[in-house]
Design a protein around this nucleic acid. Structure first.
Length: 926
RNA sequence: GGGCGGUUAGCUCAGUUGGUUAGAGCGCCUGCCUUACAAGCAGGAGGUCGCAGGUUCGAGCCCUGCACUGCCCA
């Protein structure tokens, strides 16, 4: 059956089909090994960093997924038990905000709906719109195991969350306490330190005079001036702090102040933390509204007065001192307070001041530090393990510098605030007793207080930080906490996972938490043979590869407001998935951001088209061969092509190149060098296979009656088998195109359901013959030399011309045996072997040969002189530097032998060529 | 304020433990519709490797300082 392919590659015509086929055929499922399953052979397991269930695919996802997909396809084809687990994250705040907006647009609030109804709404929303991103992933053709798809609020994963919480509580590692936390007044919840982003703001520094009062409580007429960026918090001041050695204020030690507007007496305290240089050297202390002040308050036993509610409005009883500000928003209060201070002549000055202001990562509202009761994880014991795991080398980071970043953070870690005042998420399994006021924490919903037995209990309203559940994923997706004697095959087969690929932005949010929680909880699970689990086998993954950011072509961060966001799906539709994947892979040098440029993608679309057309050419000849009764033996396909010693030079050469390329690509992927790997296959396919091999092989595809069928068959077999192997080598990078063409190679009868299930090319060093490579290089030199001479001499493209070749006797056979190749590739009518190139012909010279095109055209002596001079100068420079080194006893004595030998050989060749060019220059007519 | 990167061709980037005369893609210039491919083919131009010192027989690579620039943490 003849192959019919359109002239130009159209990705849209094939990609949807294969994307659906891979999902439908469940090709990448990695089922649980059965109880007596054989666990021989290595697993290669990766968890997809779960995108938010509300998410849409962006370039960062596509980079992440392309990298994982390349590795997992490569590992699968290399014989590993490859598993890639997909899923989505319930993303507490993000999802709640989304549905809240929807509810508001219907004229209601979530409070009006009530908690239960609202949560139901979110579930409905999730069912209808959630997981759109998974559909997009399917379109990208990622080779995940869809049968294992999870959602972080699935029943099983929720059980794991509850188990983790209860266990930590029982171990005394979860506590509840009043603490200063970052509070988002819009989301009305506490957020962790990591969820606060700082931004430089131009603000003011207000200087306020606090009256000093005497023992009688009356103003002494003296003032202490404090500086603050947030005057509204003064309502909650409980002290003013100065540095103990600040001589300006020594006389005020032990004195009290009258807090303006509120008229409360507050002490002056001494603390070395106070900076004498900042502001006036006196700082107001508001323990309930500033983390530093909170610490001061703890040290000095100060009371904390919370003056704001959840929405950052002033909360003071209207009758009380300062009650006039009650109900005002924090910024209105600031205005009024400044105004009132001014009226009382207590405002000493206003200075411009640039400072960092914290914003909610989600909604960008300015965060208000606030004293509130929250749940915390006492993190140090977990961090200790997580530090040891990395320090002892059980987890390796690539690029390595992230190891330092990680350790630095881990070694300075704070307790983790895990409670969120949200409705969407895992509700904290704790019950408060109305009778004894104690807390009951339980795996199963409590019905009575564990302490007094009362049934007057209510469940904690807070939910857990989203990262608490995603931090457990490496253990929970493989069955924890239900890993029992008869239910542990998944865990044994796939934990620890092999690799985590993710962005640096969630190094602390997610990677660090997984390491802490993974090491902590898996340690209790014995190894398959019953022995205790070491730290080395407790880690959630053995390797972490961290990639950078995808920016736009001008290196700007992509953002909606700038309007420079590239939608991967759009660009995929335009250029094809393979071209976009290849762009990302080829630019993914470890540690550098990717400036995504569609010019590159256009180039890789051209590459896809190149592959497509190479296939067309090959199929055309396979069909012609079939007509002539010649066909390729299928047993030649599927492995690594080999050739025997009497095969033609180009066949031996391309096979050697294929093996060398396979070696380089395997090596590059081993080291996460996606860029090297991609560039290497690109260079092989385009630069070697298409540019040289295909052009030469045209000579051998002679299907006429008179032709030597055995030779034609050998050429055709090499051609098809190298191409088929190249497709397999390319397939992790360009899965769609190679799947299509691979099926076409087998003409509808492939040996497997997918190219993804075949074997990745494995190099053999014995098939990389040095002589073949150098002989081919020589041949290529002839051809490019002649092409250059043709151009220089102004020979028309179509014309064929005779050439003169002078060559060292030892290499004569190369040109003689392969003269057809020279003739075909350089449009030469005849290669005349000569002792000396005829006078007056322009030459292309190399150390071991000279070549000239015979063409009736006088040399432009002046231009030729310039060219030769330039070339001579270049060679002289090289000779000089070589001599300098070779005459240096230090170099001869200390440099390794192969370097010295190499340099000597090169010096000799340079000298030879230089002599020739000098004599050519001398013999040029004036 | 503390820490970590980066600076190589017009642009985006490689350059493996220091070792022979620094590479790729895109862009640019010139010529070709050569029956796989004009999304192509062929030829060509283009770099004192941020600056200044130092170590070494030898530095794009190691050390010191400076300049510019990006990121993380406080």
């Amino acid at each position: 059956m003849p192959h019919e392919l359109p002239k130009a590659y159209d990705p849209t015509a094939i990609e949807d089909h294969w994307a659906e086929y891979w999902v439908k055929e469940n090709l990448f499922a990695q089922p649980t090994p059965d109880q007596n399953g054989n666990l021989d052979g290595q697993s290669f397991t990766v968890l997809l960093p779960p995108p938010n269930v509300t998410g849409r695919l962006h370039m960062g996802h596509m980079l992440n997924q392309t990298e994982i997909d390349i590795l997992i396809r490569w590992q699968r084809m290399s014989g590993r038990r490859a598993l890639w687990v997909p899923g989505t994250d319930h993303a507490g705040i993000a999802t709640q905000m989304m549905v809240e907006r929807q509810v508001v647009s219907e004229g209601k609030t979530r409070q009006q709906l009530g908690r239960e109804a609202f949560v139901q709404r979110v579930w409905e929303w999730k069912r209808h719109y959630g997981g759109a991103i998974l559909g997009q992933m399917k379109r990208l053709g990622v080779s995940v195991d869809w049968s294992r798809e999870y959602f972080t609020m699935d029943e099983h994963l929720s059980t794991a969350v509850r188990e983790a919480f209860v266990k930590l509580y029982e171990q005394g590692l979860i506590y509840r306490d009043a603490y200063i936390v970052n509070w988002c007044p819009r989301c009305q919840t506490a957020i962790s330190d990591l969820e606060v982003v700082y931004d430089e703001h131009k603000g003011h520094l207000w200087e306020i005079r606090y009256p000093v009062i005497g023992d009688d409580g009356k103003d002494t007429g003296e003032f202490l001036t404090v500086a603050t960026t947030r005057p509204e918090t003064m309502l909650g001041d409980t002290a003013v702090a100065i540095h103990p050695e600040d001589e300006r204020y020594t006389h005020l030690h032990g004195k009290k102040l009258r807090l303006p507007l509120v008229n409360r007496a507050i002490p002056i305290i001494l603390d070395e933390w106070v900076s004498r240089e900042f502001g006036t050297g006196a700082v107001k202390v508001t323990p309930a509204h500033d983390p530093n002040d909170f610490a001061l308050g703890q040290r000095h036993n100060l009371p904390s007065i919370n003056v704001m509610d959840e929405t950052a409005h002033i909360k003071i009883a209207p009758g009380a001192e300062g009650g006039v500000y009650a109900g005002l928003d924090r910024y209105e209060a600031r205005k009024k307070i400044v105004h009132d201070l001014e009226a009382e002549r207590l405002l000493a000055g206003i200075k411009d001041h640039v400072h960092n202001v914290g914003h909610c990562d989600r909604c960008k509202t300015v965060v208000e530090p606030r004293l509130s009761t929250q749940w915390f994880v006492k993190i140090q014991p977990l961090a200790d393990k997580a530090i040891a795991a990395v320090k002892e080398g059980h987890i390796r980071f690539t690029p390595e510098m992230y190891r330092k970043t990680y350790l630095n953070w881990m070694e300075n870690i704070y307790d983790w605030c895990i409670s969120r005042q949200l409705w969407w998420g895992h509700r904290i399994p704790a019950w408060h007793c109305a009778v004894c006021h104690k807390i009951t924490v339980a795996r199963v919903d409590a019905t009575a207080c564990a302490h007094c037995g009362s049934d007057q209990i209510t469940q904690e309203t807070d939910v857990l930080d989203t990262w608490f559940s995603s931090g457990l994923l490496p253990v929970s997706v493989f069955g924890w906490p239900n890993v029992t004697a008869d239910n542990r095959m998944d865990f044994d087969a796939f934990y620890p996972t092999s690799l985590l690929v993710t962005g640096f932005d969630i190094l602390f949010f997610w990677v660090a938490r997984m390491i802490m929680l993974g090491c902590w909880f898996s340690a209790d699970i014995p190894m398959p043979d019953g022995s205790p689990r070491s730290l080395a086998d407790s880690v959630p993954f053995r390797e972490v590869y961290i990639h950078a950011l995808v920016r736009d072509a001008n290196r700007e961060k992509m953002s909606k407001t700038k309007g420079n966001v590239i939608d991967p799906i759009e660009i995929v539709k335009q250029y094809g998935t393979d071209a976009v994947r290849f762009t990302l892979a080829s630019m993914a040098s470890p540690g550098t951001d990717i400036a995504f440029n569609v010019a590159r993608t256009e180039g890789y679309r051209a590459f896809a088209n190149k592959i497509w057309n190479a296939a067309r050419f090959i199929f055309l000849n396979v069909d012609k061969a079939a007509e002539a009764g010649i066909s390729v033996n299928p047993s030649a396909l599927g492995g690594m092509p080999a050739v025997d010693t009497n095969a033609s030079l180009e066949a031996r050469w391309i096979v050697a190149e294929l093996h060398a390329t396979a070696a380089k690509v395997n090596q590059a992927l081993e080291n996460y060098r996606f860029d090297d790997a991609a560039n290497t296959v690109y260079q092989f396919f385009w630069g070697s296979f298409c540019d040289w091999y295909l052009e030469i092989v045209k000579l051998r595809l002679d299907f006429s009656e008179s032709a030597d069928k055995a030779k034609t068959n050998a050429a055709l077999t090499t051609l098809v088998s190298v191409f088929e192997a190249a497709l397999r080598m390319l397939s992790p990078f360009t899965p769609f195109l190679t799947e299509e063409l691979w099926h076409a190679v087998y003409d509808g009868n492939p040996p497997a359901k997918s190219i993804a299930l075949t074997r990745y090319p494995q190099p053999s060093p014995t098939l990389q013959d040095e002589a073949d490579l150098t002989n081919m290089r020589l041949l290529q030199d002839f051809v490019t030399g002649i092409r250059w001479l043709r151009k220089e001499n102004g020979v028309e493209e179509k014309a064929t011309v005779p050439v003169e070749l002078r060559i060292d006797a030892s290499l004569k056979h190369v040109s003689e045996e392969n003269h057809e190749i020279i003739e075909r590739l350089a449009r030469v009518s005849e290669v005349r072997m000569v002792q000396t190139i005829s006078a007056g012909l322009k030459k292309h010279s190399a150390p071991e040969f000279d070549i000239a095109v015979i063409y009736e055209r006088t040399i432009d002596a002046a231009a030729e002189r310039e060219r030769l001079k330039k070339e001579i100068a270049r060679l002289e420079k090289g000779l000089e530097s070589a001599d300098r080194q070779l005459n240096n006893p230090g170099f001869i004595g200390k440099a390794p032998a192969h370097v010295v030998e190499g340099l000597k050989k090169q010096r000799e060749e340079t000298q030879r060529l230089l002599d020739k060019l000098r004599s050519d220059l001398d013999s040029l007519p004036e």
